[in-house]
Design a protein around this nucleic acid. Structure first.
Lengths: 339, 339
DNA sequence: ACTCAGAATGTTAGCGCTAACAAGCCGCGT
DNA sequence: ACGCGGCTTGTTAGCGCTAACATTCTGAGT
């Protein structure tokens, strides 16, 4: 920096002023400094800057380490939104999201001097864990459970998973189905709980029995295993006529199991998923699903973070933003078989 | 830090020594310092540390921004490997990987004071672009084209895509297929080129004609579009008996198109993909594919980076590490239809 | 007891930057 | 011509840490 200063014939402080877009720098001076910077190929040292300003223009993302489509897409979206706002992104992904591991990771992130944290870990106890970590930096949790308590520096953003479940269930109901079962995901996840609860509530509102099959996970493998069991019941005549799968991976496992047993989808049984994977439209048959607004979530999270930093009062509700998923009807749903 | 020092009754430098595991600190002193640190909940300021050491324990990852399974998995793997080595990870993902955007992003990453860069952008001109950016930090490119020139501070790591194509093609050959066509991916990608080239070479070695269909992309959508065309040709009797798809997304599009046209897989036509998606085993039928060693790639990239930093001489060959993919045989391949 | 090497600790300086204050400059009104 | 206020620039200090050097302490050898 002092090289630049002497080349431009000014003090290093004037260089700093130019760099920081301070007012009160004569245009001619500014140009000379800029020219000197260009000539020398000077780049400001971020460490020094971070040291003195205690701001780093970097946000941290804490996520669960698996390659699940949902979290992965959300992380990608947050990253894009952050970059659009001129922030860098430091990612830390945990295999196991327990209190200790999360606290350590959060600590590392804070040590890095990040300006804020976005937590993408839609687990039931994420809010408790993060709240318990006693963070001193602004944080936004994507997808917290509804009893989470926002504070001035910790806020929440989510997609309305209850609406997702309701949309799926009502779509099936509208088609004439009455025996609509749910294949639930991993119950440690908020999404699993919420989708389950809303499906159940919707069924009850219509005075219908709610039969649940637990996949216990989010993978095609778990969906397949449950699917074989369900296929048996359908073949025996007392199974559901429609399935609401907690996500698309489970749904594809279901599709596969039904196909193996000679059950036709949607003629014999309808299937709805959640997420809308890149290839969900090309499953056999094309999967009706509830698409999640990942990009919007990323932007909302970033905006919430910026809002905290700007001292904006928090939203009235529990969540800073609640985004709406969208039902995408394809070929895996149809009216129930006659009789 | 000075608080810790005074609480422990030592100088701040001794605290620094404890923190940096210097020898020549009496055990008793070390313990007192550690106790003071614990009591005060002291955390070292990374910015100050980075400023004085010009090392940040952070590596940068530059990648292409889409949610393609391959790059995304590799990034995840690099991140895991980095964290296992005690490094933080700063991610920058580009929508368009052109020379200008890449140079800017690389510059931002360098500005952050990262200790090394891993580029995960398997595009044909990635090496040229990165080489052209004139990086001053160690860098490793994952999946460079074979004419890339490693230097002391820029090295390459890849998965043998030619082997992947060869395995797939020979599997099909071994099953008795002779008319094995290739559905190629996006030709700006190294993987697409390599798989294409090796499939072609293998066919020629066997004196067989190599018919290529260009999907032009990596998605199920592009695979589906090409698949319809191929289905027509097969129906007309002059189509291939087996398809080697450049990746699993294309393969699923193919499966879908064939299913729509009443073509049975594998009875009427065999399909092999590349990647092994989480749900490839549950496609209808289960997809035979060539699995890529993403985790190993991430580790190899990290190791190569560490090697550069440690001043290790570069490997003899072009690549620091060449990993092998693995053929996974499932239900989408069978001998060709008789006649 | 007395040296003296080497271990243990303390002191000083400075990494590159920005904030705060100080100083210099300009043009205006009188 | 003089003084004053606002713009522009320079000077100083210090962010929290580590490297290098300076100093003090320890204990083995005489």
């Amino acid at each position: 920096m002092s090289d630049v200063a002497s080349l431009a014939g000014v003090s290093h402080q004037t260089v700093s002023r130019v760099l920081n877009d301070h007012p009160n720098v004569r245009p001619g001076t500014r140009e000379r400094v800029l020219a000197a910077i260009a000539e020398l190929g000077y780049r400001r040292n971020r460490a020094a800057r971070a040291l003195v300003t205690s701001r780093s223009s970097t946000i941290g993302i804490l996520t669960v380490g698996n390659a699940n489509f949902g979290p992965a897409s959300t992380v990608l979206a947050v990253e894009a939104a952050a970059r659009a706002q001129g922030y860098f992104v430091s990612v830390s992904s945990l295999e196991a999201f327990d209190a200790v591991a999360a606290k350590t990771a959060l600590g590392h992130l804070v040590d890095q001097g990040i300006d804020g944290i976005v937590v993408v870990a839609p687990l039931v106890d994420v809010a408790r864990v993060v709240e318990g970590a006693g963070l001193q930096v602004p944080a936004v949790i994507v997808a917290a459970n509804p009893d989470a308590v926002p504070t001035d520096s910790l806020r929440y953003v989510c997609t309305d998973q209850r609406l997702a479940a309701r949309e799926a269930t009502e779509h099936l109901l509208g088609l004439g189905h009455r025996r609509i079962a749910h294949v639930s995901g991993e119950m440690a996840w908020i999404d699993a709980l919420e989708r389950n609860g809303a499906w159940r509530a919707t069924m009850e509102e219509h005075g219908l029995a709610a039969v649940e099959y637990a996949a216990g996970g989010w993978t095609a493998e778990t969906g397949y295993a449950v699917g074989r069991r369900i296929a048996d019941e359908i073949a025996a005549g007392d199974g559901p006529t429609a399935l609401f799968a907690a996500n698309d991976y489970i749904a594809i496992g279901l599709l596969r199991a039904f196909w193996e047993r000679g059950l036709r989808v949607p003629e014999d049984v309808s299937v709805v998923g959640v997420d809308d994977l890149q290839d969900s439209a090309y499953f056999i048959p094309g999967l009706t699903t509830v698409r999640q607004p990942f990009t919007a979530m990323g932007q909302a999270a970033m905006q919430a973070l910026l809002g905290i930093a700007a001292g904006q009062p928090r939203a009235d509700g529990r969540f800073e933003a609640v985004l709406e998923p969208e039902l995408v009807v394809r070929d895996s749903t149809a009216p129930p078989p006659a009789g």
